[in-house]
Amino acid sequence: MRWYWVDKFIEFDSGKRARSIKNVSLAEEHLHDHFPGFPVMPGSLMIEGMAQTGGILLGEHFQFRYNVILAKVPKVTFHSWACPGDQIIYTADLQDARVEGGSVTVTAKVGDRLVADAEIVFVHLSSDDPQLSRIDQKNFVFRMNLLDILTVGKVDTGSADSAP
């Protein structure tokens, strides 16, 4: 299983903003237990979707030279639910980007309804950092491999991105 908590990107403005979609489906088994008779998208997975949206935005800004790791969620507020059939749109705005790491603000909305908003801080680990070897890199480093869900984009020049 791949740890993808966004289904696709719908906007990618390099160094500025990324927007992605998560379709909530009753076919997702965890919703049967969360909660029985009242299926709602778990907040923790929404944070993961927000982090993936923002993490790729930060990673791409530096052409994926760094291993971007979710470091801290200083603030997250859940305002309402996301239920099966809902389409969540995550909008991540890059606030800071520097050699050590970066930060984003992200909203999660269903239509006009605000479901959650958050601030997320990422750090960059170099490839020889011993801490990196302790992390499941396939799933927890926001890297190029996640880009295969990036179907819409703008490169630095503002032209359409031809990458998959």
């Binding site: 470091a71 801290k72 200083p74 606030q95 800071d96 050590e100 790491g101 930060s103 801080v121 750090v123």
Partner: peptide, 13 residues
Amino acid sequence: SIDFLDIVFRLEK
């Protein structure tokens, strides 16, 4: 340690 980066971001802003 993670908080130091967050503090730097916020002070800059």
